[in-house]
Design a protein around this nucleic acid. Structure first.
Lengths: 213, 213, 213, 213
DNA sequence: TATGAATGAGTGTTCATTCAT
DNA sequence: TATGAATGAACACTCATTCAT
């Protein structure tokens, strides 16, 4: 009986994957859900379908996730983590090399990561927000902000001795600005996403924003 | 559902508001839907509930809207129109007065308009996108872009003889950037939204972006 | 209703009766539907009612049938199969015995099979045709034609060396003629159905039709 | 506000045109319903649609028919009457002319009349029966029987001095047999309906059935 | 632990009919 | 008499979740 329950923190992951098999099952479920989201859209996402696609039974699915929403939440969490990891890695990698603007590489990585699984990403976030879990939007943006902050510092350090000192508000604004621009390009399925000019302008946005000119 | 759903002539028979009463009914329905969205969240939005809240019968609701989605679409459309109208008006009003930066006023108006009915706005757009109507994201952004374009032109004309000439990509980037920043602030229920610093930074974002410096 | 009704994978997921329990459930559903049809009439036939009568939940019903119409179709199919089986068996049984006219026995069997579940039969077929599935009228008649053909051959073989050679048109005409007469008697609830004279005249109809006289 | 006046004799003269108008309205409603049935099928037949198609309001429709079913009943009645009239006329017309088999002409007329508005006919009858009004099936068949009887008499009189004397059962059987064959051809949308061989075989059916051979 | 049949509240939508104007 | 907006019961169908095996 599909009663609506309040979410509890304990609900998020019912079983701790002590065994490898359990971890695998979780992975399979997440994969299946993501695949459905990407290929068939959000309205085709239901637990029976996920279980079927995952090659398990619904019962088993409910052994690992307390409810449908928990699956979406986990997907969203992983998308956020993936973004962060991807971009941070890029920045870390090039921080030695003074010949390349880290902002450019960061943005390039952001664009690339947003292009992947666009529908999954959107669906997961929308589902979460639809349920009123605004905290997640925040968590996601936080990742972005962290990244941007990193970029700002690198830039500052490497290129502009004369840059504005980043405040919290500045980081908030520029990170959400970039995220907004890239997400719009993805959501609107704009062909602009492929052009070098788009990257160029985003870089310009960051550069000019921090420049003390 | 309805099993086969051929199109019937009745599908196109939805009443057009020729009479005042009809127009009122539409308004009442939209109000009710918005209210539910704002107070109870998207998952509480169903046609029976809307009708009940609107003080009419479901049947009547379906005389004015062909289906539930159409209601969301109309809400979204109106939000977009409201944004555009609000900002354009501000810009038009101050275009004579050279003492005020139109970009600042535009941004101020945007922030103000986004603050209103935040949940309604989000819910309507999310509902639409969840249904795969990406076009609306585009339509919405277009409004933003138009606004930004207007701001850019004003700015250019009044402040910076020496500004960069806005291209399509530039307008895309800056409009989505601003939209993203403001929306994030709204969605994350960030207290930053109330601070003058936030406005300040957004203005700086636009100004520096267009500046040829 | 369901608004757009794209096909989903779940549309093809209807359980096939691999297990005995499943087969039983199907039977129970069909029984319940037939009973409602017979006792309460076609307009009382709705899925909730069927499920209730069958002692299962609507959900379960939909595990076995993709939609309401499918139930009617299955009932109709079984009625057709029942007719065919009944008559063919009779004909086969007597084909050794030259003392009895196979046409007479065939007609007798047809009358008997039509008398059973008259309302169910009619309702099922009408429901199907109402939905534009003319093919089923055809399928049903085909069974009749097959039967008649069999009768004709038997007759030919056993009684009338001198019979007209049956053509497609002839088989069409005589099979539908007999079906029409019997069905009318059933539908009109005519007491004629019980009289030996009725059988006599039907036999005469077939006999004289094929006779080369 | 019109005051109450005494009736004057001149007031009654208006009645005729008013009645004429009423009769017209009924006709228009029936036409509209038949058209919908034929072109869009039974499931598209609803009172609002009928009224719309008829160019009147639903309210007006309910001024002339107590409910939807009454419309179907009236259509069915008229179809029956039409059949009878068409065939009887043919028979009457040729009864002087000894050179033509009246059975053939009768059957030809029957086929022709069944071809017209096939969907309307079926839908009307099915709707009636679905509601349990079996009496109408009877009424319809009665018309057929009357016709056949007439044909039999004509035939008898003109062609076969040596024919079997038609009994009630015989007339029942042969009339329903012919009706069944023609209806099947119509319902199954069989191309056989167009062939001369079909008519030929029906004539043969009648002829051989009555022949004392 | 896994299974998957069963559940049933819930949802979008239709349409015959009424009645105030 | 005509209108047509309003009604609301009814219905087909979905899907998150449970639990006996």
């Amino acid at each position: 009986m599909p009663l609506k329950r309040k979410l509890r923190s304990s609900d998020f992951k019912r079983r701790t994957p002590v065994q490898q098999r359990a971890a695998d099952t979780i992975e399979v479920i997440l994969q299946a859900a993501a695949q459905i989201l990407q290929k068939e859209g959000r309205s085709a996402l239901n637990t029976n379908h996920i279980a079927e696609r995952a090659g398990i039974s619904v019962g088993t699915l409910y052994q690992y996730f307390p409810n449908k929403q928990a699956i979406l939440i986990e997907i969203a969490r992983r998308e956020i983590a993936r973004d962060r990891a991807a971009v941070m890695k890029v920045i870390a990698d090039v921080s030695q090399d003074t010949s390349i603007d880290p902002a450019r590489l960061g943005i390039r990585a952001l664009i690339a990561s947003q292009k992947k699984q666009s529908k999954v990403r959107r669906a997961a976030f929308e589902a979460l927000m639809a349920e009123g879990i605004a905290q997640f939007a925040s968590e996601s943006s936080h990742a972005f902000q962290e990244i941007t902050s990193q970029m700002a510092i690198s830039r500052d350090h490497l290129f502009l001795k004369n840059a504005r000192q980043p405040t919290t508000t500045m980081l908030f604004v520029i990170s959400r600005a970039i995220a907004g621009a890239i997400r719009s390009a993805v959501i609107e399925e704009s062909s602009i996403l492929q052009t070098p000019e788009f990257e160029e302008e985003l870089v310009h946005l960051v550069r000019s924003y921090f420049a003390k000119c």
